[in-house]
Computed example of a mutant assay.
Amino acid sequence: WITRIEESIDKNPALAKSLLAHARAKFPKSSGLAFDQARVFQREGKLDEAEKTFVEAAQLSPASADVQAWTGRFFLKVRVNKPKALDYYLNAYFLNPDTYDGEYAESRIRNLNWDLAQAEVAKRNQLGVPVEELLNDANPVVVDQALQQISKNWKASYLNVALNCLGHDDEEVRWIATQLIKSHVDRSFDPTLKALLSDEDLRKRGLAAYLAVHLWKRDSFEIMKKMLTEDSELLRFDAISALILEGEEEGRRIALEHAANERHPLLRQLLEKAKPEKPQP
């Protein structure tokens, strides 16, 4: 049934419609038949029926990444309903990360999430919601955009909320918060920075390395050398990166000299790549 119907949808829509009517009556729980019928409804411009039938197909086939993705595509391209489209693309992605409907599900999700986050931030801005409240949103893209707003309109009171973001689950949010703090603190920040460098949260302690080398330069190097001996690969990575990015020539030399003692192969590889190329004879 399905093969004959799919061969007829483009070449002979009337035949496909007739076959579907008989097939669906005989096999009402077939997700493939429901999906094909939804396609026929869409071609005929019967969008309410198409929507209902696409949803039915997705419900009948919760383990089919393709059906979930193409239902998402219907909501994205035809209904322009981004929240519903995102739900179906997420279903598809977790069934098969390589799902493709003209674009990979991962890309669809990233773009949809960004668009929805932008709309949500704009809506809350219009309602006068304080930007600090946006930092508590479950969606890291909303938090990302809130930090961008804070960056453009910095106030001293924002420092504490930026510090809280150093413990966020999303690495991009953590990095943006670090750069934001770095751009707006001076040596009066020293007591807070010292506390961060001994924080139990290794993510905060590692990010504090960038702030320390940026603010203290040579005065941070002994602390960085100690961090390079830590068991945590995360801390060693952050110490290496901070020295290379913020430590100028001497800091870079300390990081590169550590290569001989580095235990993790990926960190050793990182250090080898950072070494200057030897001049050709």
Rank of each mutant, 00 (worst) to 15 (best):
Q145P: 03
D98N: 13
Q148S: 12
A117P: 06
W154D: 05
G167A: 14
T99W: 00
I109R: 01
P130F: 09
K155Q: 15
A105L: 07
C165T: 00
E132T: 14
H168G: 08
A138P: 02
N91M: 12
Q118W: 12
L166S: 05
Y100G: 02
A156H: 03
P140R: 05
A156W: 02
H168F: 08
L147R: 04
E132H: 10
E133G: 00
L159H: 08
A162R: 02
R110C: 06
W114T: 13
L127T: 08
A92N: 01
R108I: 08
I150V: 14
L112Q: 01
V121A: 03
G167Q: 09
T99I: 01
P130H: 09
K152E: 15
E120F: 11
S107E: 15
L134S: 04
L135M: 15
A105M: 03
V161G: 02
E132M: 04
D144M: 12
Y93L: 06
V142E: 05
N160Q: 14
A156K: 14
G102M: 02
L135E: 05
L116Y: 06
T99M: 08
K123P: 04
A119Q: 15
E133I: 08
C165E: 11
K152G: 13
C165D: 00
P130Y: 09
L163G: 07
N96T: 05
Q118V: 15
A122G: 06
I109C: 06
Q148A: 14
D101N: 04
Y158V: 03
N136G: 10
I150T: 00
L166K: 00
L159F: 04
L112C: 07
N136H: 14
Q145R: 15
Y104R: 12
Q126H: 12
V121N: 05
N160I: 08
H168Q: 01
E120M: 10
N160H: 11
K123M: 12
L147F: 06
G167D: 10
T99L: 02
Y100D: 10
R124Q: 15
A156G: 05
N139S: 12
P140H: 08
E106L: 10
W154Q: 01
F94W: 14
V142R: 06
A119I: 09
E132C: 01
N111C: 07
A117D: 01
E132G: 05
H168M: 02
V143C: 08
P130N: 11
Q126W: 08
N153V: 07
S151E: 13
E103D: 11
A117F: 09
Y100I: 03
V161C: 07
V143D: 05
R110D: 13
V129E: 14
Y93F: 15
L159A: 07
N113H: 07
S107R: 14
L159P: 00
C165S: 12
A117L: 07
Y100K: 06
N164T: 08
L163C: 03
A117T: 06
K155M: 10
C165V: 00
S157F: 07
A117R: 00
E133Y: 09
I109V: 09
I150D: 01
V142G: 01
N136L: 15
L147S: 04
